[in-house]
Simulated assay, not measured.
Amino acid sequence: MSAGQIAALIAAGAFVLLVLLLAIPLVKLGRTLDEATIAIRKAHENADPLLTGANDTITHVNTQLERVDGITANAQAVSGNVSALSSVFTATLGSPLVKTAAFSYGVSRAIRARRKAKTGAEGKHSRLRGRNGTS
C-alpha cells in the first residue's frame, strides 16, 4: 500500500466517523419532530370538542343576553312610568302641599314671635323692678 492509499483510507475513516457523529443529532431531531407531529395531531383531535363546547357556551350566553335586554327594556319602561307618575303627583298635589307647609310654617313663626315679644316685654319690666330695688 502506498502513502496515498493510506491517506485515502484515513480520510475515508474520518468521513465515516463524521457521518456517524452527525447522524446521532439527526436521529434525535427526527424523534423530536415525530413527537411534535403526534402532539399536534392530538391537539387537533381535542380542538373539535373544545370548539363545539365554545359554540354551545356562546349560544347560551347570547340567549341570556337577549333576556337581559328584555329585562332592561322593561326596567326602562317602569322608570319612565315612575317619572311620569312623580310629575303628575308634583303637578296635582305637590304645589298645594308646599303651599300648606309654607303657610303652617309662617303661622308657627308668627305665634313664636308673638309669644317671644310678650315674654320679652314682661321680662323687661321684671328686670327693671329688680334694679330699682322696688318690688
Rank of each mutant, 00 (worst) to 15 (best):
N46F: 05
I40E: 14
R41H: 10
A75D: 05
I58Q: 10
A75M: 07
K42D: 13
A47W: 01
N55T: 14
N62S: 13
G80R: 03
H60F: 12
N55V: 10
H60W: 10
N62K: 12
T52I: 14
H60M: 12
D56W: 05
V61G: 00
V61M: 05
L50N: 06
A54W: 03
T32V: 12
T72R: 10
T72Q: 11
G30S: 12
T52D: 12
I38Y: 09
A73D: 01
A73G: 00
T37H: 08
A54E: 07
R41Y: 07
A47D: 02
A43C: 01
D34Y: 09
H44E: 14
D34V: 06
E35N: 10
A47K: 04
N55P: 03
N46Q: 12
T63D: 14
H60Q: 13
I71H: 00
R67K: 09
V78S: 02
V61L: 15
G53Y: 07
T32D: 10
R31T: 05
P49M: 00
V61S: 04
A43H: 03
T72M: 08
A54L: 12
I58K: 14
T32C: 05
E35Q: 11
T37E: 15
K42M: 13
A47Q: 03
D34A: 14
D48E: 10
L65C: 02
D48A: 14
Q76W: 00
A77E: 04
E66A: 11
E45Q: 09
L50W: 04
D48R: 12
A47L: 06
T57H: 12
T52L: 12
E45P: 00
A73S: 05
E66C: 01
V68Y: 02
A77T: 06
A75Y: 02
